[in-house]
Design a protein around this nucleic acid. Sequence first.
DNA 1: CGGCGTTTGCTAACGGTGTTCACTAAAGCG
DNA 2: CGCTTTAGTGAACACCGTTAGCAAACGCCG
Lengths: 253, 253
Amino acid sequence: MEQVGLSRRERVREATLSEIKAIARRHLVEHGPSGVSLRAIAREMGMTAPGLYRYVSGIDALLVAITVEMFDELGAAVAAADASVPDEDTDRRIRTSLRAFRTWAVGHRSEFATMFGPRPHVDPNADTAPAIEAARRFAATFYTLFDRLLAERRFALPDSSHLTPELARELRSFAENCGFSAPHIPVEAVMVLSSCWVRLYGVVCMEVFDQMSVVMDDMEPLFESELHTVLTGLGVRYEPPESTAPTAVSAPD
Amino acid sequence: MEQVGLSRRERVREATLSEIKAIARRHLVEHGPSGVSLRAIAREMGMTAPGLYRYVSGIDALLVAITVEMFDELGAAVAAADASVPDEDTDRRIRTSLRAFRTWAVGHRSEFATMFGPRPHVDPNADTAPAIEAARRFAATFYTLFDRLLAERRFALPDSSHLTPELARELRSFAENCGFSAPHIPVEAVMVLSSCWVRLYGVVCMEVFDQMSVVMDDMEPLFESELHTVLTGLGVRYEPPESTAPTAVSAPD
DNA sequence: CGGCGTTTGCTAACGGTGTTCACTAAAGCG
DNA sequence: CGCTTTAGTGAACACCGTTAGCAAACGCCG
């Protein structure tokens, strides 16, 4: 990327750090979250564990670091999908983006779990700020799309009858802290956004976390069904996914 | 419970096994999932780690065992809540049961995470069948309530226009394998059930897994909001929770 | 080119983990 | 009482994260 003004030393340093993160990432997908160990990484790199401490302050920090990368990667995947459709076709852009989210998730289960799954008892000294920032960046992708829908007045804002003061307060806090909504966005809209996100997050978690696996072997139809009702409620036209083999994680060639 | 015809030996055996599980459970809530270790448990019991292998085939099996207990406990909590309201007041029973689910979840985050969170790379030799069975038993609680709604024709079945063959197939599989629906339940109903469950599962996961924590500090209003729309769609009257301090986890003892 | 500080990586060590094996001591039973 | 089954131990192996001290390489600057 941008290692222009870096001294030779800094360049090789950056390179080994990248290698560390890459191997960590691979171990994550191959052996699960608990399968990421400094010693194993060092072994694979032909060095010893303490040496890694020159690059990473500990295993927790390493996990945070790769979490950042994964959020960026997910964001890039979604953005790429979004960019692959004509700019003015908002409806298709949204469908495509959301499907890209699910596709990435089911194709990267371990990653998704560490990004969106339970945070193990996090000790206060751990600096998770970068990961949170990365998550925020990722979310922004969807905010802009949603903003567009809002601007186009695609859906009617729900009447604020069942919108308790407490909920309104939380939604306002949400809108303020999450970075988007520079113009004062109505809380009702934030609520619609939350509700939609809850549903899609819910299906995807169910699928990735392998709930239901005993009882249902392909979750894509259920995702599509949720997507359908969510989009409809948002005033976005639903269309089934374009061919490309029903679900089967496109194992081409 | 039912240790009637057990020899003295079997009784004390059962007792130590219970102690093991109890300590494991406590370590789980106090130090997180990775904080459960056979050596620590043994130490606390005044014995050595290998001794535990007389009772448990390994740490994975122990985790499965306590997962079973946790599902039973969650099921009991929900059932107790359900039983605490007059039998004929279906609406309130449903509200109470679902709120009991969330309350238990937020009050037992580590447990919820191991029950409903991502399953770490599960090696095939692990026998998770008991946990799955326990989960099934738990789910049954809600099936019966839903069955009642269905019998009372509380809500209109969605038209099967956007019900693709694939979705229908999966829903049928769901209905067959999950044990309820002895009478042939319409797939449309199963779909409504799935959709509702997805939403509530979604909010609760978001809350327990601490997504949003940066952006929103009390998730109860959002849960209530989802509950509202879910119930309304189900033909069940929504009522706000009965006072009892907004969220505050009813610190047990 | 030589010197010298900085950076890198090593070894050794401590304390922790799961798990296996061989063994003793106790408990139960005929 | 004697024999069998069982509970529990100790030692060992192979891992893990992390710290401290040290030696070698690197790169800069005179």
